[in-house]
């Protein structure tokens, strides 16, 4: 063991492509699985959440307008970056989730593979969910899935990396942008993921990650008129889930109900389709 003193990392929020501290100036201790201090994470406030929604809203039209191929390229690039930093993620989830080194390797493998899987959907989902519709009459009629817009998501509490990417990737690959609340007790892998996102050609504001307490900012995000849909996957408290679902009703947001499941399962199309609407276009046919 050499006598060099380690340079420790300050964990901050990820908003609009940069890493600010919470405007509140507050932090909270992130502990490892045995209760020992790992680091202090930023405690996001409502104003941080507002800044994140602003960034997500501003980024959404450009992200959705980008060629699907290009979105797929960017997501694939994220998987490449994850692969390159896999040791860091293995160490981090070993600490915060208390996994064995072997399990941690398995989780990081699954995480990277999930990014790659979702990345490939970018330019294919429209063909699977869209349709040309055989209406009675001289019309060309087609339906395409369109992104819902800005999604506010609560990441799974237990699965701090695989669960997190399983929530974020299907939201953004189709052209949505996201404000994601990281697992409150295990926030550090989320911020390390943000460092990957920040260096992967992902436009600023497409993914915004807040650490802190879902009770503080969740209900406020649920009511925000610039948020178009909610992903309550990680909400493990019934009263908070109800409060957020009630908040969603104010501007008729779709809210995906809580579902902190086995994140190693084949995800299917459920999450991709949850945050897309169908737009149908009619056009007459004639000479």
């Amino acid at each position: 063991m050499d006598d060099r003193v380690e340079v420790r990392k300050t964990y901050k929020l990820f908003i609009n492509g940069v890493f600010p501290r919470s405007e509140s100036g507050r932090t909270y201790p992130a502990l490892d699985s045995k209760g020992k201090l790992l680091a202090h994470a930023a405690l996001a406030s409502r104003k941080d959440a507002r800044d994140a929604v602003l960034a997500a809203r501003a980024a959404q039209p450009g992200w959705a307008a980008r060629d699907a191929y290009s979105r797929g390229q960017i997501l694939y690039r994220i998987a490449e970056m994850l692969e390159g930093r896999r040791d860091q993620f293995e160490t981090e989830i070993t600490r915060c989730e208390g996994l064995s080194a072997r399990r941690a390797t398995g989780v990081v493998n699954a995480t990277i593979d999930r990014w790659v899987w979702y990345a490939g959907w970018a330019d294919k989902i429209t063909q699977v969910l869209g349709s040309s519709n055989q209406v009675s009459g001289p019309y060309f009629n087609f339906s395409v899935p369109t992104p819902t817009g800005v999604v506010a998501a609560v990441a799974p509490a237990r699965s701090s990396l695989l669960g997190l990417v399983s929530v974020i990737a299907p939201i953004i690959v189709t052209g949505n942008t996201v404000v994601c609340l990281a697992a409150p007790e295990k926030p550090l892998p989320a911020i390390s993921l943000a460092e990957v996102l920040a260096t992967s050609d992902l436009p600023a504001g497409v993914v915004n990650i807040l650490t802190g307490q879902p009770h503080t900012v969740g209900p406020w995000l649920a009511e925000h008129a610039d948020v178009n849909a909610l992903d309550l996957s990680g909400v493990d408290d019934d009263s908070l889930a109800t409060e957020m679902a009630v908040g969603a009703a104010g501007t008729i947001k779709y809210a995906l109900p809580p579902c902190d499941s086995d994140w190693t399962l084949d995800p299917g199309l459920g999450r991709l389709s949850a945050f897309m609407n169908t737009t149908t276009v009619w056009h007459p046919q004639g000479r």
Partner: peptide, 13 residues
């Protein structure tokens, strides 16, 4: 979205 038509409905649409 109706282009050069409006208020068309069909069970397949």
């Amino acid at each position: 979205i109706w282009a050069n038509t409006f208020n068309r409905f069909d069970p397949a649409s």
